[in-house]
Design a protein around this nucleic acid. Sequence first.
DNA 1: ATTGACCCTATATTTACTTCAGGGTTTATA
DNA 2: TATAAACCCTGAAGTAAATATAGGGTCAAT
Lengths: 133, 133
Amino acid sequence: MKIGDIANKTGFSIETIRFYEKQNLVKNVGRHINNYRDYGDEQIAQLVFIKQCRNIGLSNKEIKILQSHLENPQSECGEVNQLIASALKKIREQLKLLHETELQLNYLNSLCNHNGASHECGIMNELRTTRHF
Amino acid sequence: MKIGDIANKTGFSIETIRFYEKQNLVKNVGRHINNYRDYGDEQIAQLVFIKQCRNIGLSNKEIKILQSHLENPQSECGEVNQLIASALKKIREQLKLLHETELQLNYLNSLCNHNGASHECGIMNELRTTRHF
DNA sequence: ATTGACCCTATATTTACTTCAGGGTTTATA
DNA sequence: TATAAACCCTGAAGTAAATATAGGGTCAAT
């Protein structure tokens, strides 16, 4: 299978797939006689796994750790548990921050809806105001 | 005021403040005879403004646009309104995604809480499973 | 034989900083 | 007075996770 085919199948761009190979997230990629990359089921499985991991916000570094557990089925999975728990914690912190951001943006958004001079703009006046000091 | 002082006052790191100057987000920085940077109220106001903007998730590029409205009080604020509305939209999209991520992570987190072999780990088994295909 | 759709490598760009290497300056202490 | 700790400086490189670009080879069909 050529790179364009697996890109279609997995939803990653061609460039991203080549990038993942360089990063050693996609492995054992074969080559045709003409030097085109050659992919099979193994690489599809790898990319599916990567997609699952990215969907839950894991970094490429963390994905490599999980891959090592895939490759060593006898390894103890405590590290996996920790990684997921810590990811969950981070996501919850981000959610909290984003939620506050939404409130503030929503408030700003309500402060001006005309097109006048900037110095009379409710949004600009609010942003100009000193806080947290 | 030296860079360490304004860093303390504003909560930005020294390096970040120098970086902002290089990016022209902090302007008109003076110099002492010994070549140390010299800050005053103008720079404090600039950094406070930057902090407000970063708190609502704006990029440095967007901050520059807002700064140009500060500097040109007669400019029409329609651009400001649009920028905030679009930021709000982006934040809401991010929130939605993050919320889904939290659900999935929470689910994964429930699938294993022991330290056994990875191939028997509920989390790993779930991640190994193909989806969306 | 040539056009369009693919594929290749290597390098540069992006964002928003952070870190590092290699040095000067100032202040406090012994 | 010496020296060490605590500051400050510049310029370049590193980080994450791709994305884009330049310059060129390959393949299938007309």
